[in-house]
Design a protein around this nucleic acid. Structure first.
Lengths: 207, 207
DNA sequence: GTCTATAGCTGGATAGAC
DNA sequence: GTCTATCCAGCTATAGAC
């Protein structure tokens, strides 16, 4: 495991402030706004400190991404362990906490270190989803020949994330309600009514 | 219609060279690499000329996007007029020519003018798809109550684009083959075997 | 239409004092 | 750990010569 940072304790106050500031900036103004100077100003520290903690800027981006991704992994694991894993996964995939994803996606396109990190986590998520849904769908008696679990995972992910993306980036939601209705109809056929909605509004603290 | 450019004929050689250079750069290195200097160098003109033709950089980005989008609109219209509109739409949605989309998406996030343009075209595409598929699905006797055409459009778009995105950005294709198989099974049930594959390899010239 | 020159700014990154 | 000072690079955008 390569260390992204060069110095400083994992739980240092300044380090956390820097991560929070970078994440906020990225969310509000895009990754182009995440410069050492602006992050430092927002975090209330001086720019040189960022290099002290994270090395070159890539290190900061990777650290921000990894922190988020780890937190999301936990939430997904939690969701999949619910007694209604399909509902839970669907809800957590549609969660707005994925808003940063788009930024990282683009960022990964021209920052190798970031791209590698994203790719690695994307695979972790897919494998995790697959493992749980294989069991669940098997239990529901779904024919794995015509509906392989891995395809179901891909469908759920595609639709959930794509709709979020369209809303976010295109301000477009024509057909979304109808599409969601169909997905949920199918989930309902397997798991019955959604019993508890995963706490959708729980946002990660940023300060 | 606001004019993005300030001067120069639509078909000027230099203007086209600049657009091509910008598009190539964006594809190869991301929009961050699209600076007036680098575009100029690649186009074999001088940087000031870009401002002459397109005004501030936003104008260049919008022009690149619009040129691509118009070309794609034509291709989609063509596809939808085929005698197998579902197959044709599915194929054209999965076409690699959408590779720039991701870049523009992120770019639109922090360049208002670009974002507005993207949003506008996204809606044009959706409406166009909807109109054609409504007719087609009706003709196939699909029950519009449980499978509204607009939902079908959203599904096809989501899956096609999301898979492309995963491949491109995540280097991830676990489950893709299975998902594609299911989609194509359903299309086949409505339209029979795919008779002609829309010329997938046709790439837009860039020089 | 095309190029030269340049003003003015912002950012990455480090050395070294404290 | 934190800050000061600084170097150097690259960018946008314009004015104005040709």
């Amino acid at each position: 495991m390569a260390r992204a940072r060069r110095n400083g304790a994992e739980d240092s106050v300044a380090r956390t402030a820097i991560l929070d500031a970078a994440e906020q900036l990225m969310l509000e103004e895009g990754y182009g706004a995440v410069t050492s100077r602006r992050v430092a100003m927002r975090a209330g520290v001086h720019a040189a400190l960022i290099y002290y903690y994270f090395g070159p800027m890539d290190g900061l981006f990777v650290a921000v991404f990894r922190r988020r991704a780890e937190w999301m992994l936990e939430r997904h694991a939690e969701a999949l362990s619910s007694e209604q894993p399909l509902w839970a996964l669907w809800d957590v995939l549609r969660d707005k906490n994925g808003a940063l994803h788009l930024e990282f996606l683009a960022l990964g396109n021209h920052r190798k270190a970031v791209g590698a990190e994203i790719s690695s986590y994307a695979k972790k998520f897919r494998h995790m989803h697959l493992e749980s849904l294989s069991t669940a769908l098997g239990g529901y008696g779904v024919d794995g020949k015509s509906w392989p679990p891995v395809a179901v995972v891909v469908f759920l992910s595609s639709i959930a994330r794509f709709l979020l993306m369209e809303q976010e980036a295109y301000d477009l939601d024509l057909g979304h309600a109808e599409a969601i209705e169909i997905v949920e109809r199918h989930i309902r056929e397997l798991e019955g009514e959604r019993r508890s909605r995963a706490s959708r509004s729980r946002a990660r603290g940023s300060g």
